[in-house]
């Protein structure tokens, strides 16, 4: 059964007997890698679960300041990129080089759009003092013209400007050291309402109040935890997207050279698995981060 004697298919590595064995090995290996990825993100989701079950109202309040429009748009962008990726595999199986190249470029384009939107969102958070890390926000000196604004809550189908007009809390403020800012009337309203309805968890009863009064400092800490988790989760996801773009670039080069055929296309398929996995993570991140407290606001309107 020596491989040296007979026809040697393209891409068959020395340790395998035939393509079938190689494909199967590579596929199992990739899936094992994805399991590893699930556990990697799983640790982060555990963190999310623990803190959300503790401070649900702070999470809802924090979530309302994320831009659900951009988040939803990004979800759609990723889904489109998943479609183009799936079609890339389809055409790779057909050995159609041109369609592969086009679709890989499209996938990369949508991937980049996703990252671009992410950058817009991060910048917005930076400008509004919502980055939870110590002094990583835009620094606005106490003196002078340079003032920044709190972002008002943006409801769906509402532009930022409308939101800022409609609510009074979009006011200029000073942030000389770039600390985390949180001064949100809506959020406090949500918490008060929940308190009246008896929804607060034990941790919240202690975590938001001092002597029975709402304590802004304390709430800020809890919201900060939400943003911390938001940035780490989306950051890790973004990192995976960047790695995915790198893989796509490599794949584009290989596809350009016409490497893949009906006989040998497993690199395309494996890269596709990775890309879809990253997409799936976002499918969960979107509702879990962006859509937590929307109904509290929508109900009030």
């Amino acid at each position: 059964m020596s491989t040296h004697d007979h026809y040697h298919p393209p891409g068959l590595q020395h340790q395998f007997e035939d393509m079938k064995q190689q494909e199967e090995s590579v596929s199992i290996g990739m899936w094992m890698f994805l399991v590893q990825e699930i556990m990697f993100f799983g640790g982060m989701f555990t963190v999310y679960l623990v803190f959300r079950s503790r401070y649900p109202m702070a999470f809802a309040a924090g979530s309302n300041h994320l831009d659900a429009f951009w988040g939803g748009l990004n979800t759609l962008v990723l889904i489109v990129s998943s479609l183009t990726m799936a079609l890339t595999v389809y055409y790779a199986q057909k050995g159609n080089r041109n369609m592969q190249v086009i679709l890989i470029i499209l996938t990369m384009f949508f991937g980049s759009v996703f990252l671009g939107v992410k950058a817009i969102e991060y910048t917005d958070k930076y400008n509004h003092g919502l980055i939870p890390f110590s002094n990583w926000n835009k620094k606005t000196p106490a003196e002078g013209e340079k003032k920044t604004e709190h972002s008002g809550i943006v409801l769906p189908f509402e532009t930022k400007a409308e939101a800022a007009e409609g609510k009074n809390e979009a006011h200029p403020y000073h942030n000389p050291t770039g600390t985390f800012q949180w001064d949100d009337k809506e959020g406090e309203k949500i918490i008060t309402e929940a308190q009246q309805k008896g929804y607060l968890t034990n941790a919240e009863k202690i975590g938001y109040f001092t002597n029975g009064e709402l304590d802004k400092e304390k709430i800020r800490g809890k919201v900060q935890i939400f943003y911390w988790i938001y940035f780490v989760m989306t950051g890790l996801h973004g990192l995976h997207m960047i790695i995915g773009l790198g893989i796509m670039a490599w794949l584009l080069w290989k596809a350009w050279l016409g490497t893949y055929s009906a006989e040998y296309y497993s690199p395309v398929e494996m890269s596709g698995l990775y890309w879809h996995f990253v997409d799936i993570v976002w499918i969960f991140l979107f509702p879990l981060l962006y859509l937590l407290g929307r109904h509290f606001l929508a109900g009030g309107h």
């Binding site: 094992m32 590893q36 556990m39 640790g43």
Partner: peptide, 9 residues
């Protein structure tokens, strides 16, 4: 495979 990613995160 199942444990190590958790220590990484």
């Amino acid at each position: 495979l199942l444990g190590t990613p958790v220590i990484a995160i």
